Amino acid sequence: MTIGEALKEEQKRLGLTSEAMAAGVITKGTYSKVVNGKLRLSSDLLVEILFKHNIDISDFFEMIKT
C-alpha cells in the first residue's frame, strides 16, 4: 500500500473530507495529488497530518509496509 492509499484509508476511517484531512497542512489539491500517487509528500508534512488527526504513526507505517 502506498502512503497516498494509506492516507485515503485513514481519511475514510475518520469520516473526513479530503479538505478536512489536508486543512492547515497542505492544500486540498496537493492532498489529492498525494492520494492519487501523482506527488510525494515530505516526511515532515506526513507526520504533521498524522499528528493532527491523532493517527498512530506505528500503525500507519504498518499499513504501508511491503
Rank of each mutant, 00 (worst) to 15 (best):
M1L: 10
T2E: 11
T2K: 00
T2L: 03
I3N: 04
I3L: 08
G4V: 02
E5T: 00
E5A: 06
A6V: 02
L7C: 03
L7H: 00
K8Y: 09
K8P: 00
E9C: 06
E9S: 11
E10P: 06
K12Y: 06
K12H: 02
K12G: 06
R13P: 06
R13E: 00
L16Q: 06
L16W: 07
L16E: 05
L16M: 12
T17R: 09
T17A: 02
S18M: 15
S18F: 12
E19G: 13
A20I: 04
A20T: 11
A20H: 10
M21H: 09
A22E: 06
A22F: 08
A22M: 10
A23H: 14
G24C: 12
G24P: 01
G24T: 13
G24Q: 11
V25R: 06
V25P: 04
K28H: 14
T30M: 15
T30C: 15
T30D: 15
T30F: 15
Y31V: 05
S32V: 12
K33A: 15
K33V: 05
V34L: 13
V35A: 01
V35T: 13
V35D: 09
N36W: 09
G37P: 07
G37K: 00
K38H: 13
L39T: 13
L39I: 11
L39H: 14
R40T: 14
L41S: 08
L41H: 05
S42R: 12
S42Y: 03
S42D: 07
D44M: 15
L45T: 11
L45C: 10
L46P: 06
L46R: 04
V47G: 07
V47W: 11
E48C: 10
I49E: 01
I49A: 04
I49S: 03
I49R: 07
L50P: 09
F51G: 03
K52C: 08
K52S: 03
K52T: 04
H53C: 05
H53G: 03
H53Q: 03
N54C: 07
N54T: 05
I55D: 06
I55P: 01
I55M: 06
D56Q: 02
D56T: 02
D56R: 00
D56E: 02
I57D: 01
S58W: 07
D59Q: 11
F60Y: 02
F60N: 01
F60K: 04
E62K: 15
E62N: 13
E62P: 02
M63I: 02
I64P: 08
I64A: 00
I64W: 02
K65F: 10
K65Q: 09
T66C: 09
T66Y: 11
